[in-house]
Design a protein around this nucleic acid. Structure first.
Lengths: 336, 336
DNA sequence: TGCGTTAACATTATCGTTCATGTAATTTAT
DNA sequence: ATAAATTACATGAACGATAATGTTAACGCA
């Protein structure tokens, strides 16, 4: 509808000044007379000048943009993180790109290429952990980045912010054991993921400390789909597997488990105690209160943003960021 | 760590060709020998060429970027939409910006300015509906855009994709009435929002059709926060308000309601029948199966993307998009 | 043979900024 | 009074890609 967009040059012509002067005036830089600056700003407003961020970014090399690469924003866990990241970033005048990988390695590669291609200033990524090449490419490329929620323990040169998964796994398991559950089922996530590995370590430590044996057949890996958990829990019940406490990799798996148990007529926490992880309770309410391990997503997200901002603003800094945010137990109705 | 990013020029030097040829080869344009194209593509991969979208965009005037402006990605309803939008957009090589408004009018304005400043090719927005100026500004500015999930009924010149809220409200209410519930509580969302208005219309129509009076005191507006719903439902129960069927504006409100009812010892659906809206059941599992109205978020999202793509690719087209996606009832355990 | 055509590439201009300098006029310091 | 410094602006060159033309060699055809 409108005509061409107003450019710096247009303003310059009208003001009888050079484009550079206009630019400096609008950006509040040095070497400008107060009156001139005032005049230019008014003129800009009058002519409806908006500025072309692309051109500026091309020249300055900065886009004021951060890419957030996660497996799935529709997953409440990531949804909350993305929200917090966006909030933090906006405070610093940054906008975020969001790209889903569905934890697929090729999609992750594509996501990284896209982000770099769009010249984002930094990347916050929850890696699929199906390999290290993608992240190594990031490293080689030189874009500031930080891993969130998952880490490559064997490669600490990849900066990360995670929660204390080991402690979380330990606390949850210990709580169940302390409540009298000698056999605790662990419905774990994909073991390739560091958080699954570390929560398992915590699970083992709790057993060790209590002098209890770990029954390997009570450690089960469940897939991402909802049906998967339901199927597995059903099978376990029908096989009459022995356990009374259940520690789930996340709250969604915990809820599904509780659902199946209910279907079989079992009560929670009387027959089975269930504890989850993520503590997304407060956001997505459900009709019974799940005990969970709280990993402060807000804090993680904020730190992730702070870290990449630091890297953007101090490119020469060699500082390493290996941050582990504390986790703690939140006991509710599903355990007693 | 690494030096500069690899540019077209770098590739050109290595290949002994011109930058333009490289560009054409990579973009699969004409006037390139098959062997050359092959060679260039391999070289590009080998050298880790990513391309600089900024430069290309500056020249072509297109950024291959769509801004998605919603109130809150952490809300599963929007999370799912954002996911679907991203998926659809990616298929067409578009990347999405995501900006949250928290349904605040000034944040919405800021979001729009940000999007335009970043030269997005189009905007998909779920408007806060606290005013029309923001959207009018979009219109005046000429950026292709489409409203999603909410519309300004009095201003059909603003293109939109919504679900059939009126029908959804009608179906849900009718089902409850048909099941014998003469007094149906409607826990509605903020009435400034078109979807709340239209679901209410459906609620009224169902009553009318059944020859039942609408009890205005059974139409209650609940706020966005979780505590709000709980408080209101508690009050209603303690006031001994008369109703047996409950239609909730969305599934989250429905779950919360069910939770409170359970606390008071009521059973669902024996004592109260509860029906929600959104049908996010399949994604976020909960331990009882909620009846709901299904609005296909996937379809809405896909259409929204298609519409803005059409507008991008046919700037001269005057076509109007006022699309209403069908809703349907999904009956589960919370109603009988 | 000669001229037009085509395939396959090269050149140049340009997008709208900002960076790195350059410069004239004025002020300050000695 | 004169060199030095400062103020307030101008100039030209990028940034890295692509659009619009140019160019060259090989080929076809009468």
């Amino acid at each position: 509808m409108e005509g061409r967009k107003v450019t710096l040059k247009d303003l310059a012509t009208r003001a009888g000044l050079s484009a550079n002067t206009i630019s400096r005036a609008l950006k509040d830089k040095e070497d400008i007379a107060v009156a001139t600056r005032q005049m230019i700003k008014e003129l800009a407003k009058e002519m409806g000048y908006v500025g072309n961020a692309l051109a500026g970014s091309l020249r300055s090399g900065l886009t004021k943009t951060i890419a957030v690469i996660v497996s799935d924003v529709a997953n409440p866990h990531f949804g909350i993180m993305v929200k917090e990241i966006e909030k933090s970033a906006r405070k610093h005048n940054y906008t975020i790109f969001i790209i889903n990988t569905e934890d697929d390695y090729e999609m992750e590669e594509l996501a990284i290429y896209t982000a770099i291609g769009k010249n984002v200033d930094a990347i916050i990524i929850c890696p699929s952990q199906r390999g290290t090449d993608n992240i190594r490419f990031l490293q080689k490329n030189g874009v500031p980045f930080v891993l969130i929620g998952r880490r490559f323990k064997e490669e600490p040169e990849f900066d990360y912010v995670i929660c204390d998964d080991e402690k979380g796994g330990y606390l949850a398991t210990k709580h169940l054991i302390d409540s009298g559950h000698k056999r605790v089922l662990f419905l774990n996530g994909p073991i390739r993921i560091s958080s699954a590995q570390e929560r398992l370590e915590g699970y083992r430590r709790a057993h060790e400390e209590a002098g209890l044996p770990v029954h390997e057949d009570l450690i089960v890996e469940v897939g991402a789909s909802a049906g998967d958990t339901r199927l597995i829990v059903k099978q376990l019940i029908e096989q009459e597997a022995q356990f009374t406490g259940i520690f789930a990799f996340n709250d969604v798996i915990a809820w599904e488990t509780a659902y199946v148990l209910n279907k079989y007529g079992y009560r929670i926490p009387e027959d089975y105690a269930v504890i989850g992880f993520d503590n997304i309770q407060s956001r997505i309410f459900i009709p019974f209160q799940l005990s969970s391990v709280s990993n402060s997503k807000g804090k993680m997200s904020k730190r992730a943003v702070d870290i990449v901002l630091h890297k953007i603003n101090h490119p020469e800094s060699e500082q390493k960021f290996n941050e582990i945010i504390d986790t703690k137990l939140v006991l509710r109705e599903s355990t007693k």
